[in-house]
Design a binder for these strands. Structure first.
Lengths: 133, 133
DNA sequence: GCGTGATTACTCGGATACAAGATGTCCGAGTTTGAGCGG
DNA sequence: CCGCTCAAACTCGGACATCTTGTATCCGAGTAATCACGC
């Protein structure tokens, strides 16, 4: 039970893109270099963000990635769901006769966490310091 | 990013032990049978709960496991931490110059979830129905 | 009856096997920009 | 100066390799209760 490194990369990349806040795309190499990860691997992660509709890609020379939504509308939860998936963290596989009370409690707890991640927007972090990553 | 099946087994086993609420130990075979899991595997999980001080084992014939603490003092979080560990769900491995703001948000969110799991005691589930697992 | 040893019913721990997912890498294909060249 | 072509700089997608972790099994060792047996 750990968040994957991919989620970490995705969050930092989004922070960089929000900070850039440009209509010009930012190249993967530039994004990867700042995080010390290989460009090819990072691009794999970013395609998930594209499919989730958070960013879009620009092919060709001077291509790269740029935000698709308004930056105020991008929450932590959006990014995490794009990478980790939206399924519940806890699945009770036992075949109960009734609903699983344990499952119920776990889902409630998860929702508490998600609510916090939903309220927190990426752009909120940008103002405090000038893009030290 | 999923809770392991082991956590599920651990939670259900604790529910069974709390429902039993006896000074007589309950055998692994009995616990395993109700959950449809092999006894040897379940015993591996339960040793983690023993090391965490939640339950204790009784060797020999008529042996098994029984609660060590008062059943009112056993929360979901205790069990989950015993199985999954207590480390944070999110580790920012990037070498920032400053503290990672993303990490900070993630830890806050995690604490929201943990608080709920801490408030919720296993024994609360027992009263509602008579041990349908 | 009453100790004493053997048997039985358990847990405990390590070693091992297997599967799935996370983490990366490599390469070919498609796409856009921009430079260079000829008219 | 204009337009065409071509190379360079990109992203995209699939296939692959590797590593870690979760899941599960097997077996030998230790331990306590109980049974059997002999005195």
């Amino acid at each position: 039970m750990k968040y994957s490194k991919a989620t970490n990369y995705a969050l930092h990349t989004m922070l960089l893109l929000v900070a850039a806040a440009s209509d010009k795309p930012v190249g993967v190499q530039q994004l990867a270099e700042k995080q010390g990860v290989s460009p090819t691997y990072l691009s794999k992660i970013l395609t998930k963000l594209v499919k989730a509709g958070l960013i879009e890609s620009a092919s060709g020379a001077n291509g790269g990635y740029l935000l698709k939504r308004k930056k105020e509308d991008i929450s932590f939860l959006d990014i995490i769901h794009a990478i980790e998936g939206t399924t519940s963290l806890f699945d009770c596989t036992l075949n109960h006769t009734t609903d699983c009370l344990i499952q119920k409690v776990m889902v409630e707890a998860e929702q508490k966490m998600e609510q916090h991640l939903k309220d927190q927007k990426i752009v909120d972090l940008v103002g405090t310091l000038t893009v030290s990553l």
